[in-house]
Simulated assay, not measured.
Amino acid sequence: MPGIVVGLSVASIVFSGAIFGFFYAWVCSTMWGLDQADPRVAIQAMQAMNASVRNAVFFPAFFLTPVVLGLTAAAMRFYGRKSPAFWFAAAALVYLTSGLFLTLVVNVPMNEALAATVIPNDVETARKIWQDYSQRWQFWNQARTIASGVSLAFAGFGLARL
Score class of each variant (00 low, 15 high):
W137Y: 14
W26T: 00
Q36N: 13
P84H: 05
F63V: 12
T72Y: 05
W26G: 00
G149I: 09
I146S: 03
L104S: 05
A91M: 10
A73P: 01
A113P: 02
R77V: 11
P84D: 10
C28E: 10
I19Q: 08
R40G: 15
Q36H: 12
P109S: 07
F22K: 03
V67S: 10
V108G: 12
S52W: 12
L34V: 05
L71Y: 07
N141H: 13
S52A: 15
F139M: 14
V108K: 14
L93H: 02
R54I: 06
F59I: 14
W26Y: 14
V27P: 00
A115K: 09
F86C: 10
G70N: 06
F78G: 07
P66V: 11
F20H: 00
R81E: 10
L34E: 00
W130K: 02
Y95H: 04
A92N: 01
A90K: 00
G80W: 13
W137F: 08
L96M: 13
D122G: 06
F88H: 10
M46Y: 05
T145Y: 00
F20C: 08
L100V: 05
Q44G: 06
N121I: 08
T103Q: 00
P120M: 12
D35C: 03
L64Y: 12
L34Y: 07
A116T: 02
V53H: 13
A25P: 01
S134T: 04
S52I: 03
L114Q: 06
R136W: 08
V108L: 14
